[in-house]
Design a protein around this nucleic acid. Structure first.
Lengths: 170, 170
DNA sequence: GTAAACATGTAACAGGTTACATGATTGT
DNA sequence: ACAATCATGTAACCTGTTACATGTTTAC
């Protein structure tokens, strides 16, 4: 389960509360590994039980600050170096392409040009984001920038593919 | 839930048994929407209960052949034209990139070049597959070819990105 | 005073995986 | 006769989503 390791990874940066982590998931990790509030709080409790993180401070409003333990860091490194990333990629978008034959050619082309537009927009949004951030050379900046570049290239690829695909219908 | 619609989509082609559909999932849909035997049989029963498919023949060994009903086809078209594809893309691969800072630069680069190799291999495999199939101009061929092209372009994009990313570490 | 933001927790449900369980038919 | 393939079904478990439930602090 990757949520576990996503939390360890974020806590490797610096200690944080469930609420802090939730905000990070809503912003920087939203497009890579979405997680809900309920899931994050539940998992933090489990991670603390396992001993990979521990509560190192308590603040107002019942705030609990978690810190990565040595065992947690070891587990994170183990996950990164020893286990293969192999989550099944399910693509709702691509699945639909298989069944476009039940639509009229016009409808099928509309689906693909819609995808092209969506990808163009995603591409532009990420481009703007890259330009608006002042990228340093710390770990977070370097890796965040690399992940963003992936998104940019991915959207560009998908736009071109969808445009080509639309020309292939009939 | 997309599995439901994947089954409707496959049955739109021609009637089939759970076993037939399972084989299709293991081959052509494996990279787009993986599904297990248990899931498929359970879902077929539910689809028949809903009235979107029906058992139109029974064969040896308890084989049941399902056929798409008019309501099922209507639902499939509705799904394709009226609902937005919006499944969250979770990427185990990309998630790891965020946390490469806890590794040594050598380890981080090794992860990225490993990804590049993986992508190159995926690219080559799909290329070979495209070349080995005699593509007709029926619906299945056209859309299967389009989906495959996506895979080829995706792998090429990812290889180039991973190679570039490796140069960005330190 | 009151709205927004901070902060956590739990229950019910849906979707997906693994494992178990069973049996019939076909080809050699 | 035996193995491979055909063929279906169910139970336990894990992950993830939605909704409910509660209370505090800060800023205006």
């Amino acid at each position: 389960m990757s949520l576990r390791h996503a939390l360890l990874g974020l806590l490797a940066e610096h200690p944080a509360s469930g609420y802090d982590l939730l905000k990070t998931f809503e912003t920087s990790l939203a497009n890579v590994w979405p997680a809900t509030q309920s899931q994050i709080y539940t998992e933090l409790t489990r991670l603390a039980d396992t001993g990979w993180i521990s509560v190192t401070a308590e603040g107002p409003r019942g705030r609990k600050e978690y810190t990565l333990t040595d065992e947690g860091l070891a587990e994170l490194r183990h996950w990164l170096t020893e286990t293969k990333p192999q989550r099944n990629t399910r693509s709702d978008i691509l699945l639909r392409v298989f069944f476009l034959g039940v639509l009229t050619p016009d409808q099928a082309r509309a689906y693909l040009t819609g995808l092209a537009d969506l990808s163009q927009q995603g591409h532009d949004d990420l481009r703007r984001l890259v330009d608006s951030v002042d990228w340093g050379d710390d770990d977070l900046s370097v890796h965040g920038r690399i992940a963003l570049e992936y998104g940019i290239r991915f959207n560009a690829m998908r736009r071109e593919w969808a445009e080509w695909a639309a020309t292939q219908i009939r």
